[in-house]
Protein backbone atom coordinates (compact mmCIF):
# COMPACT_ATOMS: atom_id res chain seq x y z
CA UNK A 1 0.00 0.00 0.00
CA UNK A 2 2.82 2.39 0.88
CA UNK A 3 4.21 1.75 -2.59
CA UNK A 4 0.99 2.70 -4.22
CA UNK A 5 1.28 6.10 -2.60
CA UNK A 6 4.99 6.52 -3.31
CA UNK A 7 5.24 8.87 -6.27
CA UNK A 8 8.89 7.98 -6.80
CA UNK A 9 8.17 4.34 -7.34
CA UNK A 10 7.58 2.97 -10.83
CA UNK A 11 6.87 -0.73 -11.08
CA UNK A 12 9.50 -2.49 -13.17
CA UNK A 13 12.32 -0.01 -12.68
CA UNK A 14 14.09 -2.16 -10.10
CA UNK A 15 14.30 -5.23 -12.37
CA UNK A 16 15.53 -3.02 -15.21
CA UNK A 17 18.24 -1.65 -12.94
CA UNK A 18 19.31 -5.18 -12.09
CA UNK A 19 19.29 -6.03 -15.78
CA UNK A 20 21.45 -2.99 -16.47
CA UNK A 21 24.00 -4.04 -13.87
CA UNK A 22 23.89 -7.60 -15.12
CA UNK A 23 24.56 -6.51 -18.69
CA UNK A 24 27.43 -4.28 -17.60
CA UNK A 25 29.12 -6.82 -15.40
CA UNK A 26 28.39 -10.25 -16.90
CA UNK A 27 31.01 -10.13 -19.68
CA UNK A 28 33.69 -8.80 -17.34
CA UNK A 29 33.00 -11.36 -14.66
CA UNK A 30 32.98 -14.21 -17.14
CA UNK A 31 36.34 -13.15 -18.52
CA UNK A 32 37.69 -12.94 -14.99
CA UNK A 33 36.46 -16.43 -14.25
CA UNK A 34 37.84 -17.91 -17.45
CA UNK A 35 41.23 -16.30 -16.85
CA UNK A 36 41.69 -18.89 -14.11
CA UNK A 37 40.87 -21.72 -16.49
CA UNK A 38 43.52 -24.42 -16.40
CA UNK A 39 43.01 -25.52 -19.98
CA UNK A 40 44.50 -24.77 -23.36
CA UNK A 41 41.13 -24.17 -24.89
CA UNK A 42 39.44 -20.97 -23.90
CA UNK A 43 35.96 -22.45 -23.72
CA UNK A 44 36.43 -25.80 -22.07
CA UNK A 45 36.69 -25.48 -18.32
CA UNK A 46 39.66 -27.45 -17.02
CA UNK A 47 39.67 -26.50 -13.36
CA UNK A 48 41.02 -23.43 -11.65
CA UNK A 49 44.63 -22.41 -11.73
CA UNK A 50 46.93 -19.43 -11.99
CA UNK A 51 48.63 -20.97 -14.99
CA UNK A 52 47.84 -18.16 -17.43
CA UNK A 53 48.96 -15.52 -14.98
CA UNK A 54 52.28 -17.32 -14.85
CA UNK A 55 52.27 -17.30 -18.63
CA UNK A 56 51.71 -13.53 -18.64
CA UNK A 57 54.70 -12.86 -16.40
CA UNK A 58 57.13 -15.56 -17.48
CA UNK A 59 55.81 -17.10 -20.71
CA UNK A 60 57.01 -16.76 -24.31
CA UNK A 61 55.14 -13.55 -24.95
CA UNK A 62 55.89 -12.03 -21.59
CA UNK A 63 58.73 -9.85 -22.84
CA UNK A 64 56.48 -8.22 -25.42
CA UNK A 65 53.73 -7.51 -22.90
CA UNK A 66 56.15 -6.31 -20.25
CA UNK A 67 57.66 -3.80 -22.65
CA UNK A 68 54.20 -2.67 -23.68
CA UNK A 69 53.11 -2.36 -20.05
CA UNK A 70 56.20 -0.30 -19.25
CA UNK A 71 55.42 2.05 -22.14
CA UNK A 72 51.79 2.31 -21.06
CA UNK A 73 52.64 3.12 -17.47
CA UNK A 74 55.40 5.64 -18.15
CA UNK A 75 53.26 7.39 -20.74
CA UNK A 76 50.26 7.40 -18.42
CA UNK A 77 52.25 8.86 -15.53
CA UNK A 78 53.78 11.60 -17.63
CA UNK A 79 50.63 12.41 -19.57
CA UNK A 80 48.51 12.49 -16.41
CA UNK A 81 51.03 14.66 -14.56
CA UNK A 82 51.28 17.17 -17.37
CA UNK A 83 47.54 17.20 -18.06
CA UNK A 84 46.75 17.64 -14.34
CA UNK A 85 49.13 20.58 -14.07
CA UNK A 86 47.67 22.25 -17.12
CA UNK A 87 44.12 21.55 -15.95
CA UNK A 88 44.80 22.97 -12.46
CA UNK A 89 46.06 26.22 -13.94
CA UNK A 90 43.11 26.31 -16.33
CA UNK A 91 40.61 25.73 -13.53
CA UNK A 92 42.20 28.54 -11.50
CA UNK A 93 41.87 30.82 -14.50
CA UNK A 94 38.28 29.83 -15.20
CA UNK A 95 37.03 29.99 -11.62
CA UNK A 96 39.28 32.31 -9.66
CA UNK A 97 40.62 34.91 -12.06
CA UNK A 98 37.51 36.92 -12.88
CA UNK A 99 37.00 37.99 -16.45
CA UNK A 100 39.69 37.84 -19.06
CA UNK A 101 39.97 37.76 -22.79
CA UNK A 102 38.96 34.53 -24.44
CA UNK A 103 37.33 33.09 -21.33
CA UNK A 104 34.23 31.83 -23.09
CA UNK A 105 36.25 30.25 -25.88
CA UNK A 106 38.53 28.64 -23.32
CA UNK A 107 35.74 26.58 -21.86
CA UNK A 108 34.89 25.15 -25.26
CA UNK A 109 38.57 24.59 -25.98
CA UNK A 110 39.19 22.57 -22.81
CA UNK A 111 36.24 20.35 -23.58
CA UNK A 112 37.07 20.07 -27.27
CA UNK A 113 38.95 16.77 -26.88
CA UNK A 114 35.74 15.31 -25.45
CA UNK A 115 33.61 16.54 -28.35
CA UNK A 116 35.74 15.56 -31.32
CA UNK A 117 35.26 11.83 -32.03
CA UNK A 118 38.33 9.87 -31.00
CA UNK A 119 38.94 8.53 -34.46
CA UNK A 120 38.95 12.05 -35.88
CA UNK A 121 41.44 13.20 -33.25
CA UNK A 122 43.55 10.18 -34.15
CA UNK A 123 43.52 10.99 -37.87
CA UNK A 124 44.20 14.69 -37.31
CA UNK A 125 47.10 13.99 -34.97
CA UNK A 126 48.66 11.50 -37.35
CA UNK A 127 48.35 13.92 -40.27
CA UNK A 128 49.77 16.74 -38.19
CA UNK A 129 52.86 14.85 -37.09
CA UNK A 130 53.47 13.56 -40.57
CA UNK A 131 53.03 17.04 -42.07
CA UNK A 132 55.59 18.62 -39.76
CA UNK A 133 57.89 15.70 -40.42
CA UNK A 134 57.87 14.35 -36.89
CA UNK A 135 58.57 10.63 -36.63
CA UNK A 136 55.76 8.80 -34.92
CA UNK A 137 56.72 6.94 -31.77
CA UNK A 138 56.84 7.25 -28.00
CA UNK A 139 56.82 11.04 -27.99
CA UNK A 140 53.87 11.42 -30.35
CA UNK A 141 51.83 9.03 -28.19
CA UNK A 142 52.73 11.07 -25.12
CA UNK A 143 51.70 14.37 -26.69
CA UNK A 144 48.40 12.98 -27.98
CA UNK A 145 47.63 11.54 -24.54
CA UNK A 146 48.31 14.83 -22.80
CA UNK A 147 45.77 16.54 -25.07
CA UNK A 148 42.86 14.21 -24.45
CA UNK A 149 43.65 13.80 -20.75
CA UNK A 150 43.20 17.52 -20.05
CA UNK A 151 39.37 17.58 -19.91
CA UNK A 152 39.27 14.45 -17.76
CA UNK A 153 41.66 16.00 -15.26
CA UNK A 154 39.79 19.31 -15.47
CA UNK A 155 36.35 17.99 -14.47
CA UNK A 156 37.07 16.87 -10.87
CA UNK A 157 39.49 19.73 -10.29
CA UNK A 158 36.97 22.38 -11.38
CA UNK A 159 34.20 20.67 -9.42
CA UNK A 160 36.31 20.82 -6.30
CA UNK A 161 37.43 24.39 -6.90
CA UNK A 162 33.85 25.53 -7.24
CA UNK A 163 33.29 24.39 -3.66
CA UNK A 164 36.16 26.46 -2.26
CA UNK A 165 35.14 29.96 -1.29
CA UNK A 166 37.33 32.91 -2.11
CA UNK A 167 37.63 34.01 1.51
CA UNK A 168 40.49 31.66 2.39
CA UNK A 169 42.81 33.17 -0.16
CA UNK A 170 41.57 36.64 0.68
CA UNK A 171 42.51 36.05 4.28
CA UNK A 172 45.94 34.92 3.11
CA UNK A 173 46.34 38.06 1.01
CA UNK A 174 45.20 40.12 3.97
CA UNK A 175 47.94 38.47 6.02
CA UNK A 176 50.59 39.68 3.58
CA UNK A 177 50.90 36.58 1.39
CA UNK A 178 51.69 37.19 -2.25
CA UNK A 179 49.23 35.77 -4.76
CA UNK A 180 51.67 33.00 -5.59
CA UNK A 181 51.93 32.13 -1.91
CA UNK A 182 48.15 32.21 -1.57
CA UNK A 183 47.96 29.77 -4.47
CA UNK A 184 50.67 27.47 -3.17
CA UNK A 185 49.88 27.54 0.54
CA UNK A 186 46.09 27.86 0.53
CA UNK A 187 44.44 26.93 -2.73
CA UNK A 188 46.62 23.95 -3.67
CA UNK A 189 46.30 22.16 -0.31
CA UNK A 190 42.55 22.75 -0.29
CA UNK A 191 42.42 21.50 -3.85
CA UNK A 192 44.49 18.38 -3.16
CA UNK A 193 41.62 15.85 -3.24
CA UNK A 194 40.34 17.26 -6.54
CA UNK A 195 43.80 17.28 -8.05
CA UNK A 196 44.48 13.70 -6.98
CA UNK A 197 41.13 12.60 -8.37
CA UNK A 198 41.88 14.39 -11.62
CA UNK A 199 45.29 12.77 -11.86
CA UNK A 200 43.92 9.29 -11.26
CA UNK A 201 41.19 9.69 -13.87
CA UNK A 202 43.65 11.08 -16.41
CA UNK A 203 45.96 8.17 -15.64
CA UNK A 204 43.27 5.59 -16.37
CA UNK A 205 42.15 7.38 -19.50
CA UNK A 206 45.70 7.35 -20.82
CA UNK A 207 46.23 3.75 -19.81
CA UNK A 208 43.03 2.72 -21.56
CA UNK A 209 43.37 4.53 -24.83
CA UNK A 210 43.53 2.39 -27.91
CA UNK A 211 42.32 4.24 -30.99
CA UNK A 212 44.50 7.34 -30.86
CA UNK A 213 47.55 5.39 -29.75
CA UNK A 214 47.03 2.92 -32.55
CA UNK A 215 47.19 5.73 -35.08
CA UNK A 216 50.12 7.70 -33.76
CA UNK A 217 52.34 4.98 -32.36
CA UNK A 218 54.30 4.20 -35.49
CA UNK A 219 55.99 0.88 -36.04
CA UNK A 220 57.90 -0.98 -33.40
CA UNK A 221 56.34 0.54 -30.28
CA UNK A 222 53.34 -0.85 -28.46
CA UNK A 223 51.28 0.05 -25.44
CA UNK A 224 49.29 -2.59 -23.59
CA UNK A 225 46.01 -1.97 -25.45
CA UNK A 226 47.65 -2.05 -28.89
CA UNK A 227 49.59 -5.16 -27.94
CA UNK A 228 46.41 -6.82 -26.70
CA UNK A 229 44.52 -5.77 -29.83
CA UNK A 230 47.26 -7.20 -32.02
CA UNK A 231 47.14 -10.48 -30.10
CA UNK A 232 43.34 -10.67 -30.23
CA UNK A 233 43.40 -10.28 -34.00
CA UNK A 234 45.03 -13.72 -33.92
CA UNK A 235 42.23 -15.04 -31.72
CA UNK A 236 41.44 -14.77 -28.03
CA UNK A 237 43.97 -16.78 -26.04
CA UNK A 238 43.76 -17.50 -22.32
CA UNK A 239 46.74 -15.29 -21.50
CA UNK A 240 44.83 -12.33 -22.99
CA UNK A 241 42.10 -12.98 -20.49
CA UNK A 242 44.63 -12.97 -17.67
CA UNK A 243 46.10 -9.66 -18.86
CA UNK A 244 42.63 -8.22 -19.29
CA UNK A 245 41.71 -9.22 -15.77
CA UNK A 246 44.85 -7.57 -14.41
CA UNK A 247 44.21 -4.38 -16.33
CA UNK A 248 40.61 -4.41 -15.25
CA UNK A 249 41.64 -4.66 -11.63
CA UNK A 250 44.08 -1.78 -12.05
CA UNK A 251 41.24 0.38 -13.43
CA UNK A 252 38.87 -0.58 -10.63
CA UNK A 253 41.48 0.12 -7.97
CA UNK A 254 42.29 3.51 -9.43
CA UNK A 255 38.67 4.58 -9.84
CA UNK A 256 37.89 3.46 -6.32
CA UNK A 257 40.86 5.43 -5.04
CA UNK A 258 39.79 8.48 -6.99
CA UNK A 259 36.27 8.19 -5.63
CA UNK A 260 37.44 7.73 -2.04
CA UNK A 261 39.90 10.61 -2.23
CA UNK A 262 37.19 12.87 -3.63
CA UNK A 263 34.80 11.89 -0.86
CA UNK A 264 37.40 12.22 1.85
CA UNK A 265 37.95 15.81 0.83
CA UNK A 266 34.24 16.48 1.06
CA UNK A 267 33.89 15.00 4.51
CA UNK A 268 36.70 17.08 5.86
CA UNK A 269 34.88 20.18 4.78
Amino acid sequence: MARKLDIRHFPGFLPITYLCLFLLYAPLIIVMIYSFNDSNSITIWGGASLRWYGEVFWGVESAKFKAAALNSITIAVMAATTATTIATLAATAMLKAGRFRGKSVSFALINLPLMVPEIVTAVATLIFFSAIGFTTGYLTILVAHIVFCIPFAYLPIAARMQGIEDVYEQVALDLYATRFQAFRLILLPLMAPGIISGFLLAFIISLDDFIITNFVKGAGIETLPTAIFGAVKQGIKPNIMAISTLLLLVSVVFVTLSYLVGRMGQNKK
Binding site: L89, G98, R99, F100, D166, Q170
Partner: peptide, 20 residues
Protein backbone atom coordinates in the same frame (compact mmCIF):
# COMPACT_ATOMS: atom_id res chain seq x y z
CA UNK B 1 37.32 40.19 -5.66
CA UNK B 2 38.86 37.37 -7.70
CA UNK B 3 42.10 36.43 -6.08
CA UNK B 4 43.95 35.90 -9.34
CA UNK B 5 42.29 38.67 -11.34
CA UNK B 6 44.41 39.66 -14.29
CA UNK B 7 46.25 36.35 -14.38
CA UNK B 8 43.56 34.56 -16.40
CA UNK B 9 45.36 34.69 -19.72
CA UNK B 10 48.64 33.62 -18.16
CA UNK B 11 47.07 30.63 -16.38
CA UNK B 12 45.14 29.62 -19.44
CA UNK B 13 48.14 29.80 -21.75
CA UNK B 14 49.32 26.18 -21.35
CA UNK B 15 45.85 24.84 -22.20
CA UNK B 16 45.53 27.09 -25.21
CA UNK B 17 49.00 26.16 -26.40
CA UNK B 18 48.62 22.40 -25.98
CA UNK B 19 45.08 22.02 -27.26
CA UNK B 20 45.48 24.70 -29.91
Amino acid sequence: TSTYAGLGVFLMLPSWAVIG
